[in-house]
Deep mutational scan, measured.
Amino acid sequence: MGFKLLSKLLVYLTASIMAIASPLAFSVDSSGEYPTVSEIPVGEVRLYQIADGVWSHIATQSFDGAVYPSNGLIVRDGDELLLIDTAWGAKNTAALLAEIEKQIGLPVTRAVSTHFHDDRVGGVDVLRAAGVATYASPSTRRLAEVEGNEIPTHSLEGLSSSGDAVRFGPVELFYPGAAHSTDNLIVYVPSASVLYGGCAIYELSRTSAGNVADADLAEWPTSIERIQQHYPEAQFVIPGHGLPGGLDLLKHTTNVVKAHTNRSVVE
């Protein structure tokens, strides 16, 4: 069995187990497998329904001669939608809004960016022009300005110390501490036991640490421990890039980060 097929099978099995364990909360999309990078042309966006009122959005972007996937989250909030992270750029984010209108038909009224990198804030200006209120932590807003990236308009308070959590509509926002970046936030959907790890969490097929220019490698494993301790009931975990899975993604990420750190020390 090929690795790609095995990865998709694991996603399907995880979703099936969740649907059985929580039949009222989960209505997993039966329309197909989780979209992969090879299936999404740059400039297009796919939506994948995880649970009743919960979707991931998947886009792709060219970077350094390669094409990478990027995940975000959409959560229903009454007759409105909360968006977590842009679709990595203005063109993708405009396509995301169009796809949401086509498939869901509810307005996106608020959006949260989970850290300051372009795959999370690139497209904020498109959201703002569409009347979406954009939010991020003060740290993310400051770092985005320093980096020359787009800056969300509103500040999220109460997320300055490791372990801080605040309720934001249908989700809980959690600051686990520094990891992929010093400002990275985690998003949890309690009604569906869905954990969105953003770039602080890796997919299972990833074996290298990737972009760690703004990471705190020493603190990252401790931050992941905080996530595990705060959300032990999480059933569906979405990484910032690639295929979702279960809580095993947290341990896998820790292993990859520690291996990278150990290699760096040896070198």
Rank of each mutant, 00 (worst) to 15 (best):
S22L: 11
L5Q: 15
A90N: 09
I238C: 00
P107M: 08
G198Q: 05
E33V: 10
D216P: 02
I40A: 07
D216E: 08
S7I: 09
L97C: 00
L47G: 03
V124L: 09
G177L: 02
H117D: 02
I186G: 02
F168R: 02
V121D: 04
A90V: 08
I227Y: 02
S160V: 12
A165D: 07
L195D: 00
G163M: 04
A209G: 07
H252W: 04
A192V: 12
S191R: 11
W220P: 02
G245T: 02
P190Y: 06
P41A: 15
Y34F: 15
E147H: 15
P41T: 12
P239N: 01
V67W: 10
A178H: 10
Q235M: 09
A213H: 11
R206H: 10
D79G: 11
E267S: 06
I104R: 00
I17S: 12
P170C: 03
A98I: 09
T140Q: 03
E39V: 12
T60F: 09
I186T: 10
N92R: 05
S30H: 11
T14N: 08
M18A: 14
V75A: 07
G72I: 01
D119W: 00
L82S: 03
L6K: 15
E150C: 03
V112M: 07
V265A: 12
L24C: 07
Y34I: 09
P138Y: 10
Y175I: 00
A192H: 09
W55M: 01
F26H: 11
I224L: 07
R128I: 11
E267V: 05
V189G: 01
S155N: 13
N92G: 07
S113W: 04
A15S: 14
Q235L: 10
R120P: 01
L243G: 09
M1S: 03
S139M: 14
H154S: 08
V257Q: 02
S30F: 12
N262M: 12
P23I: 09
E267G: 07
S139R: 11
Q61E: 06
S223D: 02
V54W: 02
T86Q: 01
L9M: 10
A87S: 05
E267M: 10
G53I: 08
G105F: 04
A165Q: 13
T134G: 00
R120E: 02
F236S: 10
I151Q: 03
A98F: 12
P232L: 08
Y231F: 11
N255Q: 12
E39N: 14
T153E: 15
V265R: 12
S70R: 01
L10G: 13
D183V: 03
A87E: 00
V11T: 10
D119H: 02
E147V: 13
V37F: 15
G210W: 04
V189H: 05
M1R: 05
D183S: 01
P138H: 09
S62F: 06
R142L: 14
K251H: 12
T261C: 06
F116V: 04
T207A: 13
G105S: 12
D164F: 06
V124W: 03
G122N: 14
G43I: 02
T182Q: 11
A259P: 08
A209P: 11
P170W: 03
E39T: 13
P244M: 09
T254H: 14
D77T: 05
S155H: 09
V132F: 03
Y34P: 08
A234Q: 01
Y202F: 13
S70L: 02
L173V: 11
P138T: 08
W220Q: 02
Y68A: 15
D125E: 13
E39C: 07
F116L: 05
I84T: 03
I186V: 13
L82R: 03
T86R: 02
L243R: 14
S162I: 11
A178K: 12
L185F: 05
N211Q: 11
Y34W: 15
